[in-house]
């Protein structure tokens, strides 16, 4: 088990390093576009632009910039925004809370709804509750967030006047975005839950449990659910990566503060340091979550650590 955890951590570190390097290289092939454009518009001379680039360290050779960036990263320094000239870590820090709140609330909705739909579907295959659950989960998977979101705004805030359509801050502002994002993510959780449950349901040891006369409810709760939960948890954890992307759309839709809005703004402005900072952060979060769930999965299920190590 210790070997398994160590190998997994090591390969994750390599992957994160690869991500940072790739994103850094990609975003530095075309250096300082945003600055030049912005400053030329402001009527700056070539000398001013050169001075500004020198101040940001953009005149140095790329390998030096890369090493400086990595060194800064280890201290939690993500560089400075080209546009606002504030530290990227400050910009991200200001927005992080709102996005984490949204993602956590959406995940809660997604897990509750997804597990429920998936279990219904697997337990009643062919019968109407199973079919209904199946249809809802495909619908959840197929409807774009930006459409369900618009519909939700229209119904709950324009028409019924129950919840605010835009903004952030209070719990009321959180309900609609979290429900919309969570509904979409619940689709994939439901489908994976159903697939895993059906696979386990036809395993030999379940047949044995049935043959020796255990009640169906008991088999489902104790044998089937227990064997299925670890892989389902892994898939749920992987959805967090999707939540980060979905948050960008949800935040734009509901005009909420957050990392997603910061990112979309930075992409429009070609503010490379901010884009890079957010990418590095999300690769780090995503990889950490996947390594933690892998190790947890290994603890919960001995088969994984023997095959996976």
């Amino acid at each position: 088990m210790r070997h398994f955890a160590r190998d997994r951590l090591l390969s994750t570190l390599l992957i994160v390093w690869g991500c940072v390097t790739l994103a850094f290289a990609a975003l530095h092939i075309i250096p300082g576009n945003a600055i030049v454009g912005q400053m030329l518009q402001g009527g700056a001379t070539q000398a001013d632009i050169a001075a500004r680039q020198a101040a940001l360290g953009l005149d140095r050779p790329l390998p030096v910039q890369y090493v400086t960036y990595l060194a800064g990263l280890l201290r939690g320094d993500l560089g400075y925004s080209y546009i606002s000239q504030l530290p990227v870590s400050t910009l991200i820090g200001e927005q992080l809370g709102a996005t984490v709140m949204l993602a956590a609330a959406a995940l809660l909705v997604a897990v509750a709804l997804g597990l429920g739909l998936g279990i219904l579907e697997a337990a009643h295959t062919g019968a109407w509750p199973g079919r209904l659950a199946g249809t809802i989960s495909v619908l959840a998977l197929s409807t774009p967030i930006y459409w369900t979101g618009t519909a939700a705004i229209f119904i709950f805030s324009s028409w019924l006047g129950l919840l605010p359509a835009t903004g952030s801050g209070s719990i009321d502002h959180l309900i609609l975005p979290a429900a919309v994002l969570g509904f979409h993510v619940s689709g994939s959780i439901a489908r994976v839950t159903r697939t895993i449950l059906t696979e386990v349901m036809y395993a030999d040891y379940i047949r044995v449990a049935r043959a020796k006369g255990l009640p169906g409810q008991y088999i489902f709760r104790v044998h089937i659910l227990r064997a299925s939960l670890p892989p389902i948890l892994t898939v749920v954890a992987l959805q967090i990566g999707f939540l980060l992307g979905g948050a960008a759309i949800t935040e734009a839709l509901f005009a909420r503060q957050g990392i997603g809005q910061l990112l979309v703004g930075a992409v429009i402005d070609q503010d490379y340091p901010v884009v890079l900072g957010i990418v590095v952060l999300s690769a780090l979060v995503y990889s950490t979550i996947s390594v933690v769930t892998d190790i947890l999965h290994g603890i919960l299920d001995p088969r994984v650590r023997e095959n996976g190590a």
Partner: peptide, 12 residues
């Protein structure tokens, strides 16, 4: 590439 969330990679 998989360690980047899908939509984020597209945005980069």
């Amino acid at each position: 590439l998989l360690a980047f969330p899908n939509l984020l990679l597209a945005l980069v």
